[in-house]
Amino acid sequence: MPRAGLNAQIVVREAARLVDEVGYHRLTLAALANRLGVALPSLYKHIKGAEALAQQLSTLATAEIAEEMTTAAAGRSGEDALRAAAAAYRSYARRHPGRYPATQRVPDPADPAHLAAGERAVGVVYAILRGYGIDGDAAVDGVRMFRAAVHGFVSLEAAGDFGLPRELDSSFDQMIAALGVAFRSWPAPGPA
């Protein structure tokens, strides 16, 4: 019999807290069951397995980072919106070092909640790019550029891989300013 009050949402939320403590790649169903005070077989009443848990954790984390980026960029435009969204992204990665890697999972087309969370996350960046006059296929390139830059920075920062003697906030600010310059000078689309 499942533990009273335990459900899939509680299991995923507790998994999110656990990965922030132990790291995304160190999450096991056994550790989660122990944390929840249930036997491992009991956990399967709420979650289908490790892959299903990873999927649901990704959905949760993607929705969270999308919400933070959306809130930060709301009412802003141009470089102000770009800076706010990037800062929210970085802040989320710093506060949730275990959850953040889950945001990098490609949404499962069979999971409407995950798709919606992913669309909302990239939608923030698409909206910012529209403010720069970038849309269509060029916007896809811009979203990829934003993600590669900001994800690369926060991943290197989390791993402690910046060894040069310069304050990281200054480097992050310069990177976002450079993205703003790139987006302001985005080449017009060529002939079709």
Rank of each mutant, 00 (worst) to 15 (best):
I47Y: 03
A52H: 13
L57Y: 03
T62V: 14
A63L: 01
I65Q: 10
E67Q: 15
T70A: 10
A73C: 04
A74H: 09
G75E: 12
R76N: 14
R76C: 15
E79R: 09
A81E: 10
L82N: 00
A88Y: 03
R90M: 01
R90N: 01
Y92A: 07
Y92H: 07
Y92R: 01
A93C: 06
P97M: 14
T103W: 00
Q104W: 10
R105I: 15
P107A: 13
D108E: 08
A110D: 15
D111F: 07
A116S: 08
A116V: 00
G118C: 05
R120Y: 05
A121I: 01
V122W: 06
V124E: 02
Y126S: 09
Y126N: 12
Y126Q: 09
A127R: 14
A127V: 10
L129Y: 02
G133C: 13
D135V: 09
G136S: 07
D137H: 11
V140G: 08
D141Q: 14
G142N: 01
R144M: 04
M145V: 15
M145W: 10
F146K: 02
F146G: 02
R147Y: 06
R147I: 11
V150N: 00
F153M: 01
V154K: 02
A158W: 06
G160V: 05
D161W: 01
F162E: 07
